[in-house]
């Protein structure tokens, strides 16, 4: 009887520790990151122009989007992903040659140490409101020839109007995609290309008409170029 009680208490304790730690991290993230990043999906209910006021990309579905290893290393060394910031028009300044990105207005991202980055990455990976979108994905990573992939990405689908597929090559209003494969879950890549508005109704990315096979080819191209990155 006595033994059973002790065992029971130990079990409660063992469960209790990670739960409490988890709640701490949630609070910390809310405090340190919530001033810029959305951590819930309320923005989806606001009028579209809330997109213009965002200071950072939403993190409310981070666990359905990122690779944990990438989060862990990026949070310690946050290199720029969006050449023109979180809301590009806010960082555009007119010039004689047209609008240019005013890089002076792009702030550096906060840096975490390894211990914090590990805890935060673990916590962000628990934010998975869109499991159903991921489960519905049929994408199986495959191969594509560089030339064909590039034609799809550029000439046929016009993705290069807004995204770079190599450093300094391509549009700058979207996140660069030459490291997308290292950063994002393959199923997310495919699901987002197919239905960006299902993830974020105010996405600045057009909902295309690419069929499933074409979407998978585009994802394979991101795999091809991403695996060549250091």
């Amino acid at each position: 009887m006595k033994l059973r009680l002790t065992l029971g208490a130990a079990a409660v304790l063992a469960l209790g520790v990670p739960l409490a730690a988890h709640a701490d991290v949630a609070g910390e993230v809310k405090q340190q990151c919530g001033s810029c990043h959305a951590l819930d999906h309320d923005y989806a209910k606001a009028p579209t122009h809330e997109r213009a006021e965002r200071k950072a990309p939403p993190l409310d579905y981070a666990g359905n989007k990122f690779r944990r290893e990438w989060l862990f290393s990026w949070l310690q060394n946050p290199v720029r992903l969006r050449p023109a910031g979180a809301f590009p028009p806010a960082h555009a300044k007119p010039s004689a040659d047209g609008d240019v990105v005013d890089t002076a207005t792009l702030a550096k991202h906060p840096v975490l140490d390894a211990a914090q980055a590990g805890k935060v990455a673990d916590y962000l990976m628990t934010l998975t409101p869109f499991d159903t979108l991921i489960k519905a994905e049929t994408y199986q990573p495959g191969t594509i020839a560089q030339r064909m992939g590039q034609m799809n990405f550029g000439k046929f689908k016009g993705c290069d109007g807004c995204h770079q597929d190599a450093p300094d090559k391509g549009g700058v209003s979207g996140p660069e995609l030459y490291t997308a494969w290292q950063r994002l879950q393959p199923a997310f890549i495919s699901a987002y290309i197919a239905q960006p508005a299902a993830w974020d109704p105010h996405t600045m990315m057009p909902v295309g008409d690419a069929n499933t096979a074409a979407v998978h080819k585009l994802a394979n191209y991101l795999k091809l170029i991403g695996e060549k990155q250091p």
Partner: peptide
């Protein structure tokens, strides 16, 4: 809506010279 969706290519002044246009 124009600010959110269109200025990235058509420019903050609507003159066709958005930040993506150069590329």
């Amino acid at each position: 809506l124009y600010a959110v969706y269109c200025t990235q290519c058509h420019g903050v002044a609507g003159n066709g010279k958005g930040i993506n246009a150069a590329q």
